[in-house]
């Protein structure tokens, strides 16, 4: 049984995303540690990609910083291995189809699982193409996490009923990035999901403030934050860990209201 469910046990999950290796291996490792110590329930470890088509400018730049610092998929596995020495929280990867496919799906999931990861999110691999990765992921005990978008409509039930780990509910159209307002009718989407499955659903894309976190956690089982955290990394360099910890605590407080 995957660790992922622990993130949602009797609580709303705060899910934190950072790009691995941004701006370098050591700082990135310290940033993840700070985020975990501050109370993140699940972390998404971004494996940087040269052309992240689902990302807004903030995470695009993080990917460039990470790749420029020499980050590779194997080093991301090492980073997770380093974290696993101290922490037992669920860890999932977020990356694009090509880094996984070109590495060799079987080899990738074998190494990912050995490193201690529990699942993967691949935004450019929709439900129809999941066969490309799902089998290898399952073979090594990793969950292939499905996404549901504001445009999913008649696809929601089918996707939800077969979902593993948790469901990533995309809050808004477009790419990742901070938004002042989320206008999608998320209640209706979550209702359809709940009719189809017990797998927890977490909302991501555009969430940055404790107030938004509070609002979204009332609707769903968890809240995912990426760009707002990556921006803290970009603006604070080596001082990022303390700032990230402060931020995670404020978001957790928002969720627990």
């Amino acid at each position: 049984m995957s660790r992922i469910k622990n993130a949602f046990d009797n609580k709303k999950a705060f899910i934190a995303f950072l790009t691995a290796g941004d701006p370098d291996y050591e700082t990135s490792l310290n940033n993840f540690r700070a985020v975990i110590e501050a109370g993140a329930d699940l972390i998404e470890v971004g494996i940087p990609f040269s052309d992240p088509i689902a990302e807004g400018p903030v995470i695009q730049e993080a990917d460039i910083r990470a790749l420029s610092s020499g980050m590779t998929t194997d080093k991301v596995f090492r980073l997770v291995k380093d974290l696993r020495k101290d922490y037992d929280l669920p860890i999932v990867f977020m990356t694009y189809a090509n880094p996984v496919y070109h590495y060799g799906a079987d080899e990738f999931f074998k190494n990912a699982s050995e490193a201690g990861a529990d699942g993967i999110i691949i935004p450019d691999c929709p439900f129809e193409e999941r066969g490309e990765f799902e089998g290898s992921a399952a073979k090594y005990g990793m969950d292939f996490i499905s996404m549901i978008a504001p445009t999913s409509e008649d696809r929601i039930k089918t996707i939800a009923s077969q979902a593993k780990g948790f469901i990533y509910v995309v809050s808004s159209l477009g790419v990742t990035g901070v938004r002042s307002e989320i206008t999608t009718d998320l209640d209706s989407i979550i209702k359809l999901i709940k009719e189809a499955t017990d797998t927890p659903a977490a909302i991501g894309f555009g969430i940055s403030t404790p107030a938004q976190a509070a609002e979204m956690s009332k609707k769903a089982d968890g809240v995912i934050v990426g760009s707002a955290m990556v921006r803290i990394v970009a603006e604070n360099g080596k001082d990022a860990p303390a700032k990230l910890a402060e931020y995670v605590k404020s978001m957790k407080a928002g969720i627990n209201i």
């Binding site: 978008a149 999913s152 477009g174």
Partner: peptide, 12 residues
């Protein structure tokens, strides 16, 4: 070939 795009675009 195939259709490797974000879920947001699939219905479209």
């Amino acid at each position: 070939g195939g259709q490797y795009i974000p879920e947001t675009l699939m219905n479209e």
